[in-house]
Design a protein around this nucleic acid. Sequence first.
DNA 1: ATAATAGTGTCTATCAGACATTATCGG
DNA 2: CCGATAATGTCTGATAGACACTATTAT
Lengths: 292, 292
Amino acid sequence: MAEPDGGQAERDFLAGYDPRAFDPIAVTVDVVALTLRAGRLHVLAVERGGPPFAGRWALPGGFVRAGRESLDEAAARELAEETGLDAAALDRVHLEQLGSYGGPRRDPRMHVVSVAYLAFAPGLPDAQAGGDAAGAGWLPVEAISPPGQPDHVRPRPFEQGRRTGTYGGGTGRRPGTDSAGRLAFDHGLILADGLERARAKIEYTPLATAFLGETFTITELREVYETVWGAELHAGNFHRKVLSVPGFVESTGETESRPGSRGGPRARLYRAGDARLLHPALLRPDREAGVR
Amino acid sequence: MAEPDGGQAERDFLAGYDPRAFDPIAVTVDVVALTLRAGRLHVLAVERGGPPFAGRWALPGGFVRAGRESLDEAAARELAEETGLDAAALDRVHLEQLGSYGGPRRDPRMHVVSVAYLAFAPGLPDAQAGGDAAGAGWLPVEAISPPGQPDHVRPRPFEQGRRTGTYGGGTGRRPGTDSAGRLAFDHGLILADGLERARAKIEYTPLATAFLGETFTITELREVYETVWGAELHAGNFHRKVLSVPGFVESTGETESRPGSRGGPRARLYRAGDARLLHPALLRPDREAGVR
DNA sequence: ATAATAGTGTCTATCAGACATTATCGG
DNA sequence: CCGATAATGTCTGATAGACACTATTAT
């Protein structure tokens, strides 16, 4: 398949690197920002003010400023605009590139390539709308319908355990409660990819601590894993395992000021250690029914 | 940090989704195509015909055709143009997205966002130049200097074991032999990221088989791992481990027509199984000196 | 015969998971 | 005291790695 004719490839050649000779492609960043609120996984979303998908929730994002910022910088900027965080608070947020989405018709107006980012954030204040969004908020991920399914069907990829929330109530689509429907564009797919990445990433990195405050107890850390994985873990084994992985957590020497409301000893406090990879990793409980 | 003024954010808002109101950003795909030749890992590269970086090797790539193809399709097209493979042969090549690189000054001419892809290919014929490249070829990865280092220094991230090649000979920079220098643009960084991805990916997926033909022996499979990881593996343990992972390989019932030139029994032949993930994974030998 | 390779068997240290136990707290 | 939770201890099955061994072929 080597250069069949003087068609598109030839035009590419003659045009060199000047894209003005072509139809343009827009470059945006979109952020899948995850956090834990009240024991449930939430994602930052903005409500679209205009068409297409007016009134639907979408991932926060926006144009990359040509010649003036890197992709990482653009993602951090968008995240800051939507969360209202200052640089110091943003420092505690983990931000990594997730992948790029560039189908020619994913936006009906023109060809848009979106570079998606994944963020792990500790408990944060309410979001605030930035840019052209009508509103912003933290949505429980299980309130979002997976792509390619009717709004009321809710299979595998999303949330499997602890169905403790108020889901199913039904007063509309206010963040923090029931169904938020499908996300705009292909953002449901991007979210699903982000969730899978998050589930995999906390296996072999200490990033679960990014969902917590400066200090935390082993039980709080376990609850992060249980929420993200949607599975219950054995408390005793988890405890021993976490302490045995070098560099995962380090003791502060302190204990919680007061134990849980139902009694029990004061839990010791830890902070994130200096490891960037967990050796050995914390493996998810059997999912051998997984992709064969 | 919420919308400080009516500056850039305001202009974004007013411009909506029309990037013609801004300086444009070009979108390209670049491919890190890896293959094994003569027991060494090679990467597909093209020799640049014009500035910048004229005469230097670069990763094959090109513009995404606006409104007409997805990123995946663009990557497959670029790979086909440079390798001369038809659709059938391309079918046996694994191609996945690696990541995007979009610093504002990575190309001196304008802001270019490159979506990088990683390809695992079986032994292929010589490459052919496509597009505006002066030449194309398979370069041994250890002949490429890592980014940010003088050409003759060659530390960690690249190739650690089996220094069997002719590296250091010194008759110029013909593919397949000695030093090829640093790659153009930030392609050395992209290559390093691709190599690390490849090393990690063969741990928990059966993609090492993508470097081999339709059928292969366990020893050939082990040599793939040894080459990609740059470490020697215990033949006996590797053999038992591979056969114990469900769905990794399946026997063809046949044996090699003739054993190795130095004798020994005929090895049994296998083909890739139907597993997409390896459970349990094949872990790289201790690199606990790794990133802590 | 010798050397090299394919494939299998055996032993041990390690680890994940199930389960039990002890200690500390609130009600 | 009772129930719940934090933290540790014990046992077992599975596995990775070291090593040994047998079988098969070229020279």
